[in-house]
Design a protein around this nucleic acid. Structure first.
Length: 267
DNA sequence: ATGTCGAGGGATCCTCGA
């Protein structure tokens, strides 16, 4: 019998852009066993629904829901010993949008939203326009969740570098969609609506990265930035006990280009 | 200036997306 996390008085919710669930499976299973989050939100599973290896997670005691598609994108929510109750998949407002980037569920008394926000490069262009429209649609949905006054967390790969303190070199990234003023404005509008950026709150000086490119020796040089976030509703913000980045997992063999982020919420 | 992955289609490489 595993030590139940409830005994510790906290619920750990983690997010991990895994960059391919099949390619990453050994690393992902090892991360779940070592860090044992109550809830794990996954992005970029890059798998169709029928190819998602749920049986491997069930062996570790996790249950889950997922929203995949062929080739790229795809999100999932796993929970330790409890089946997430799905609330919504996909965002309203653009019926022709067939990207699998949004999954929302109730689990462990929390509303958990797992997102993979569009990258938006190159700028300008249709992909950047899509990113900004998607952020508007996300804001609308998050406002509706706020109105429900439930303890809620929106976590995942936001593909937004919030401030210059969140990137190793603002100059090197200046033309990137991740830190355009429009991207940042849309992100800070979410915070202005009452959501708390957990990692930023606990690390006001910045310098925390969640992503290091595979190219140009970015990991070895610590050329990273912070784009994976956990946003807490007012009902949850006061319950934030700790948060962090599992940075060491980025340095392992066959690692994702992202490191997991996590929060611990007092019960 | 450049440096890498993962998936998919169709082929022992190319394209796309990041």
């Amino acid at each position: 019998m595993r030590l139940r996390i409830e005994l510790l008085g906290v619920t750990k919710v983690a997010s991990f852009n895994i960059n391919g669930v099949k390619a990453r499976l050994p690393r992902l299973l090892e991360w779940l066993e070592e860090t044992r989050p109550a809830v794990a939100c996954l992005q970029e599973i890059k798998s169709q629904d029928e190819g998602f290896p749920i049986a491997e997670f069930e062996k570790l005691g996790y249950k889950g829901i997922w929203h995949g598609q062929k080739g790229f994108n795809g999100v999932a929510i796993l929970a330790d010993g409890e089946m997430p109750e799905e609330v919504q998949r996909g965002l309203d407002g653009e019926p022709e949008d067939d990207h699998s980037r949004y999954l929302e569920a109730n689990v462990f008394g929390l509303r958990v939203v797992c997102i993979y926000l569009p990258n938006g490069n190159p700028v300008p262009g249709p992909k950047f326009d899509y990113k900004l429209r998607w952020m508007k649609r996300l804001r609308d949905r998050m406002a509706a969740i706020r109105a429900e006054e439930v303890p809620a967390i929106v976590t995942g790969d936001f593909n937004v570098i919030p401030t210059d303190r969140d990137v190793w070199s603002p100059q090197a990234m200046a033309s990137d969609a991740l830190m355009q003023p429009e991207s940042r404005d849309a992100y800070f509008r979410l915070l202005g609506d009452g959501w708390t950026d957990a990692i930023a709150t606990h690390n006001p000086a910045g310098g925390v990265w969640t992503y290091w490119d595979y190219q140009a020796g970015a990991w070895q040089r610590d050329h990273g930035f912070r784009i994976d976030h956990a946003l807490l509703s007012p009902e949850l913000a006061d319950r934030l006990a700790a948060c962090g980045v599992d940075k060491a997992h980025r340095g392992r063999e066959k690692a994702s280009d992202h490191a997991p982020v996590w929060v611990e919420l007092r019960d």
